[in-house]
Nucleic acid binder design. Structure first.
Length: 351
RNA sequence: CAUAAAGACCAGGCCAG
């Protein structure tokens, strides 16, 4: 059974959920009995396949076999219920487990809070947090970041700020880089960059250093706000501090620089990224190609389009620049009129 | 601490407004 679980676990890591379920059924026929861990893995599989009901049946099976479902079993189900939009049932299950004498762990609480936030039930999440902070087990820092993210997303940035200041002044909670980054990201997306930077500086002075995600949010936010020089400053700072930019950094940077008309720099970063061994994704290509078309750099755009195809990437369908590039490929722009027309759809007039 | 559970970052298209 131990070996079976090991195997199931790696199958799940590959996201082959139905394969895992089938394997379990076969092994069951051969007489290998599932333990609680097996069942928890399978519950997760059913949840991922959108079949929470089957997951609940497995909880029943666990009970029938005399197993005591633990925090992990319940967390898995709670997550599944939330992902199906059944936040109320998730809350019920959370309360049920408490009644049964299984103390929810921080992870269980975090799972529930995250699940509720992701289905726009921030209200329920906040209510639950309030109840929990009056109880015996105080929420840790982790459970607050999904709430902050959700509040920002729904536009209640000020409420997020409020909650954040309560959290960081609470002596029983030690804020971490994720908590700060969540707020920084929310502020960036609301174009409140000076506040984002202030929080970033606060974080640094608290001895918490930003990581690649923190910098990504800032760089992206600055670029969306037209502050591309600032964005490059943070990019340099990040590299100076020994933080390696990742594909998301480069995609944000390239896209943002293009939007700000800095396509030459964008191309430099594209080359830098390749030199660093970071493989451009189809997004990277699309951003650059799109921008080259807009800049009427047809040759460069087409060169990249071919490079994209050479390096494995499938062009994005339903996309203006893919369509135009294809038509180039097929030699459809033999007439100036057709080209003219296509380029007009870009809001540009060919020279 | 083991085989199972929680938080932050990137383009476009479509639909809704």
């Amino acid at each position: 059974t131990y070996t079976l679980n090991l195997l199931l676990s790696s199958i799940v890591k590959l996201k082959c959920y139905s394969a895992a379920i089938q394997l379990h059924m076969k092994m069951n026929l051969v007489g290998i009995e599932p333990d609680l861990c097996t069942l928890t893995i399978l519950i997760n599989c059913y949840c991922e396949l959108g079949q929470v009901d089957h997951g609940l049946c497995l909880l029943g099976e666990a009970l029938k076999r005399g197993y005591d479902p633990n925090q992990k079993t319940f967390s898995t189900l709670i997550k599944g219920l939330c992902e199906q939009g059944k936040g109320v049932y998730a809350l019920q299950l959370f309360e049920n487990m408490t009644e049964k004498g299984i103390e929810p762990s921080m992870v269980t609480l975090g799972t529930l809070i995250t699940g509720l936030c992701k289905i726009n039930e921030v209200g329920l999440a906040l209510e639950l947090l309030k109840k929990m902070s009056n109880g015996n087990c105080k929420p840790n820092g982790v459970v607050f970041s999904p709430v902050i993210v959700a509040l920002c997303k729904e536009g209640s940035v000020d409420r997020a700020l409020n909650l954040f200041s309560k959290v960081i002044t609470d002596p029983s909670i030690s804020p971490d880089v994720v908590l700060y980054s969540s707020l920084i990201h929310g502020l960036c997306n609301s174009r409140r960059l000076s506040e984002a930077i202030r929080i970033f500086d606060d974080m640094t002075s608290q001895g918490i250093s930003g990581n690649v995600v923190t910098y990504n949010s800032l760089i992206h936010g600055l670029l969306q706000n037209g502050e591309w020089k600032e964005a490059r400053k943070y990019f340099d700072e990040m590299v100076d501090r020994g933080i390696s930019p990742n594909i998301i950094t480069y995609n944000s940077l390239i896209h943002g620089l293009c939007q700000n008309g800095q396509w030459k720099d964008a191309k430099i970063y594209f080359n830098e990224m390749v030199n660093r061994g970071i493989l451009p994704t189809v997004r990277t290509f699309n951003n650059l190609i799109d921008s080259f078309f807009k800049e009427k750099k047809i040759g460069e755009a087409f060169e990249l389009f071919e490079l994209m195809i050479k390096t494995d990437q499938k062009p994005i369908e339903n996309n203006r620049c893919t369509q135009i590039a294809r038509q180039f490929q097929e030699g459809k722009f033999s007439t100036t009129e057709s080209w003219f027309k296509e380029m007009q759809s870009y809001g540009q007039f060919p020279d």
